[in-house]
Amino acid sequence: MIGLYAKAAVGAVLPGRARSLPGTVLERSVTPEVGHLADYARVCGFPLGDRLPPTFPHVLAFPLQIELMAARSFPLPLPGLVHVANRITVHRAVALGEQLDLRVRAERFAAHPRGAQVDLVAEVSVGGDRVWDGRSTYLARGAQAPTGLAGELPDLPEVDGPAAAVWRVPADTGRRYAAVSGDVNPIHLNPVTAKAFGFPRAIAHGMWTAARALAALQGRIPDAATYEVGFRKPLLLPSTVELVTEQAKEGWDLAVRNRKGAVHLVGTVR
């Protein structure tokens, strides 16, 4: 994976990048292993059970996302892409031991107020039945979308209640999540590599924060649900942050913020 980042970094400075999204669909079949699930569950705060955490298939699909985005046929340079939103729909609980057929493609290359955005879409099927959908929206700052089409971003409620929990997020969180997710983007690994990309310190993976927040609702959400998050201010490591949860009409609204009130993540479970 580090190789892919390096390749992409080289690709970023070479001319000849495509101007529109490739029609590529990448596929992979995988049966998750207990050891990988246990490592992921431990890092994100899920219990080790027979149902995959709703956010877990994302890490299974992630290598395909990277492969697609690192290719020369992809119009945006992978280094510098910022994960700004993510939507996961679990159609039914996925059991450990099931063989998962993953398909990943890119769509919705559109304008964003600060550049261009693109969605990486992952679909997971078991025996031909769709069980899980993921949509990761990335922003390329300063890039231009081919058409004037404006991108959509989820409209998420801002919850501002008292903290349900306080998390002390240790400095090695990025390295620990990198090990279980394969997302070895240097901005998460240590302060030195993060500084090279303009961050004062390493930052937590957005999907770690999203998973950790969802894990806090363990037992309170149905097997089939849609989990939507928007990523705001980067969560600098180490940090002490607050989780806010609010029961909504048909689910939960949540937020992760720092102790001064700056918001790292807002989300809904429906």
Partner: peptide, 17 residues
């Protein structure tokens, strides 16, 4: 063996659920 990675809390929660 099979549950080498499972904690007391993992197993108790799973069994309760």
């Amino acid at each position: 063996g099979r549950y080498a990675r499972a904690s007391n809390l993992d197993m108790l929660t799973t069994t309760l659920d």
